[in-house]
Design a protein around this nucleic acid. Structure first.
Length: 219
DNA sequence: ACCGGGATGTTCT
DNA sequence: GAACATCCCGGTG
């Protein structure tokens, strides 16, 4: 993997939907562990019923209201961490949820952190899995993505193919109809809806592999 | 393969 | 007391 350049703050100081789209294909790193981002979701802040910031600032979502280019990490379902990238400007709470990645390097470390993963395909194929593989916890909330332990870099690979879909896991009426999820079609690490109709829905959302995209992993 | 349900604790009603 | 931006395991076909 080429070294790559850290994404500048300007990259994050935009509408979360634009940031989400442009984050596909970028690389998140922690030490020697790295994954290519293949699935994200945009959350628009106080005007988005699906966002943690919908009801204004709280202790939990404070980082979202800070400057762009920082990591917002939250705890959910009593046992999982999820990581977001803070967008727009200080005082606004736009963010992008990192939902899945394709393992690039440090796979041995990932496997150690995620003993439940039976295949490499299970290492980063979900928001909480990605956090666990990269060792992201609440301690990393509020850290700078340009200079902290966790960084997002552009390794100058060509932009991957992109698709959109409704966001996953939102209750009805929480903005679940907006197509604010972006993913790389055909990448097997992309997470999908669980439960009834998963197979049909997954086909609809993930579709078929396209031209071989660098970093795309077939395990 | 495809489901169904349990785990587990913080946040907000 | 309910909801929750989830994951994993074990049952069944």
């Amino acid at each position: 993997m080429t070294p790559g350049s850290v994404l500048p703050q300007d990259f994050y100081a935009r509408d979360p939907k634009a940031v989400a789209r442009d984050l596909l294909g970028k690389v998140i790193t922690r030490g020697r562990v790295a994954a290519r981002i293949v699935e994200v979701e945009a959350y628009l802040g106080e005007r988005d019923p699906g966002s943690h910031a919908f009801r204004g600032p709280t202790h939990r979502n404070a980082t979202m209201f800070g400057p762009p280019g920082f990591l917002y990490v939250y705890f959910t379902y009593g046992m999982h961490w999820c990581a977001n990238v803070v967008c727009t400007t200080e005082g606004e709470a736009g963010a992008v949820l990192l939902r899945a990645g394709a393992p690039l390097s440090g796979l041995a470390t990932m496997r150690k952190r995620r003993p439940a993963a039976r295949r490499d395909l299970d290492l980063c194929s979900g928001p909480a899995k990605l956090c666990e593989a990269l060792g992201i916890t609440g301690r990393d909330d509020g850290t700078d993505l340009r200079g902290g332990p966790i960084r997002i870099v552009d390794d100058r690979e060509p932009a991957p193919p992109r698709r959109t879909s409704p966001r996953i896991g939102l209750a009805a009426g929480r903005g679940d109809h907006h197509r604010w999820r972006w993913y790389v079609p055909g990448d097997p690490n992309v997470s999908g809806p669980k439960g009834v109709g998963a197979r049909t829905a997954r086909r609809q959302w993930t579709e078929r592999p396209r031209a071989g995209y660098p970093g795309e992993q077939r395990a």
